[in-house]
Amino acid sequence: MRKWIEDRTGLSKLVKVMLDEPVHGGAKWSYVFGSGLVFLFILQAVTGIVMTAFYSPSSTSAWGSVYYLQHKTSFGWFVRGLHHFGSSAMMILALVHMFQVFIFGAYKNHVN
């Protein structure tokens, strides 16, 4: 089963490439922001898609559907919270990441 999935998707190869990517000049904590952004982006996408299933975009039921999501569903409040704070966190991380790339000169060609 595992091999079959691997044969079809190359999933574990992808995970390896993502996790074991050699970092030029050694790994540093200051390099986490890019990965953090990728994680947040996936989180926003997944929570957003799941919450769409509980949203009704109409003038009469929009409020009601959000109320239902927040108060009546299992973990609806939590997932909505993740999405809410995730969006702010993404803005902050994007800025930090941009400054980090700029200050470290990461956009220049590598020599080592």
Partner: peptide, 16 residues
């Protein structure tokens, strides 16, 4: 801790 609640929400209409 993140995945479990998201899955829990996704399958809510099934369980409740």
């Amino acid at each position: 801790g993140v995945i479990a609640p998201v899955v829990g929400l996704a399958i809510h209409p099934w369980m409740k």
